[in-house]
Write a protein that binds this DNA or RNA. Structure first.
Lengths: 220, 220
DNA sequence: TAGATTGTTAATCGATTAACAATC
DNA sequence: TAGATTGTTAATCGATTAACAATC
């Protein structure tokens, strides 16, 4: 059960897919399976799957027979630490903010969405996915008072940096940034940026059969 | 100008950020700058920036003085190959599909959005970002007839696999998948999956100060 | 026991960082 | 020339793959 002092980020990022594969199998009545089956459903090789489990310290495998899925599920969940709740807010109640708030995957793993913020007075007061939309002007106080550690930025590129400035000053520790801007923040703040356009551009390189893309691994 | 036979994927993924940094500097009247400045604006070290340029075969740097931004911009754009147009469609006209369609970053780099598809008859016929929403039933024909190579899946997890099946049969070569499901496709089809919930979960691990996260690099 | 499948080791691959010689 | 900054090399780090000994 105890995992080694640090698990590679790449491994951690695959755990949710393993959990989904396990859940899918379980709901089909499969309670026990070899690495090859779970791996195939997760889009990775069985070698990588087993390697990941080993890095994570999982122990519900039995040589010659496979894994007890219920036990494995519990171990993976423990690594992701969903027991301890973590709260976050979304800034930007446009289509993207709306999509994120409603997304089932934002509700997984011990995450609590405390609020959604927008500058548009029309939107303020309405509810999205059961959470009320507040005005941006109350963002700083809200983050500070509720000890919100994660802020999701779903605004346009122009306001992203100023939102980051505000929430960092208010004590936010982590930012998930969907605006295509490189945020400048103090080193103690962790930023993950996802530029949806960049993902599309990488596929476009493939489509063009660009020389630059000579060989890129499939599926990521 | 000619780049070596294959540029690392990690390098290619940073080029758009470099382009944005260069554009920002240019619009501030800066026409020439050292690697350290562009790198800082792009959120990377100057060493990495120069290394990337070298991998890409850029040549607008001058020892002792820096880079000609206009020249550099042109070279980077050439690598991304935006000259040759590539067309794509979005499946799913919910909030996510809407957000993607409207996103300025989806309009960059020689990308043409040809259509948006949804099952909901209410949405069919309306326009999003100047593109008409069509019914899912016409998806296969549309992809085949227009030689669409990239399909963006912005549906819920339940329909994602069946959409993938349809478009692959119709000839799509690349899929950008936002549903949290591992798609099973033939090896010739390139899939990039982005699970927005996973990104949030990784930040949550940090927030919890989980042992598993002992040391993870900041900013990605 | 024989067959199957794990967990781990070693080899490979890819990406980042640091340092510095080349040179404007 | 002296100072600055590039482009590249070598060292490090991290992640993946392959292979197989351990063992149920």
């Amino acid at each position: 059960m105890p995992q080694s002092s640090h698990v590679p980020l790449a491994t951690l990022e695959r755990l949710p897919a393993y959990l989904r594969a396990i859940d899918a199998l379980t709901s089909h009545g499969v309670g026990h399976a070899p690495s090859s089956l779970v791996a195939q459903r997760s889009g990775v090789s069985s070698a990588q799957f087993r390697k990941d489990l080993s890095l994570v310290g999982a122990s519900s495998g039995v040589r010659g027979s496979g894994y007890d899925l219920a036990g494995l599920r519990g171990e993976l969940r423990d690594v992701l630490g969903s027991a301890e709740r973590v709260s976050f807010v979304i800034v930007g109640a446009g289509h993207l903010g709306h999509a994120l708030a409603a997304s089932s995957s934002f509700r997984r793993g011990g995450l609590d969405m405390l609020g959604i913020f927008d500058i548009d007075d029309e939107k303020v007061g309405t509810q999205i996915a059961g959470v009320v939309v507040r005005h941006d002007s109350s963002l700083a106080d809200f983050v500070a008072e509720n000890g919100v550690s994660i802020v999701v930025i779903a605004t346009g590129p122009d306001s992203a940096q100023s939102v980051a400035d505000v929430v960092v000053r208010a004590g936010a520790q982590e930012i998930l940034n969907f605006a295509s801007v490189v945020l400048q923040v103090p080193p103690c703040v962790e930023v993950r940026s996802i530029d949806l356009g960049v993902e599309l551009q990488m596929l476009a390189l493939h489509a063009r059969g660009s020389q630059a893309m000579a060989q890129v691994p499939s599926v990521r």
